[in-house]
C-alpha cells in the first residue's frame, strides 16, 4: 500500500469512486479523476487504485455511502489543508 497526500488546492477533490461493503467491488476504487481537481493536481492518484484508508480511517467493511461521506468530510474539513489516502493497486 502507498500513502498519498492530496493537497486541497482546488475547489473539488475531483475523483469518482465505486464500491463498498456488500457489493461486487468490496473496497472503494477510483474510477474517474477529473482534470483541475485536487486529486488530478497531486499527480499521484490514478484510476483503478483502491482506497484503504482516509486520514487513518479504515474504509474496510463500510458501505459505499459511508465511505463516500468520510472522504467528502475529510475534504471539507478545515482542520487540515490536505488528505492522506492509503491506496493499493
Amino acid at each position: 500500500a502507498t500513502l498519498v497526500r492530496v493537497v486541497k488546492n482546488a475547489n473539488t477533490l475531483g475523483i469518482a469512486i465505486e464500491g463498498g461493503a456488500n457489493t461486487r467491488q468490496p473496497m472503494p476504487r477510483i474510477v474517474t479523476i477529473q482534470k483541475g481537481g485536487s486529486a488530478h493536481n497531486c499527480e499521484q492518484l490514478k484510476v483503478g487504485l483502491v482506497i484503504l484508508e482516509v486520514n487513518g480511517i479504515s474504509l474496510r467493511g463500510r458501505e459505499h455511502k459511508e465511505a463516500a461521506r468520510i472522504i467528502a468530510e475529510a475534504f471539507k474539513s478545515k482542520e487540515k489543508d490536505y488528505i492522506d489516502f492509503l491506496v493499493v493497486e
Binding site: I17, E18, G19, G20, T23, R24, P26, T32
Partner: peptide
Amino acid sequence: VREKRLTLPPSEITML
C-alpha cells in the same frame, strides 16, 4: 468466492 461476488449487487458511483 467468485460466484458469491457475482451475486452481490454492483456498486453505485459517487463523484467527490
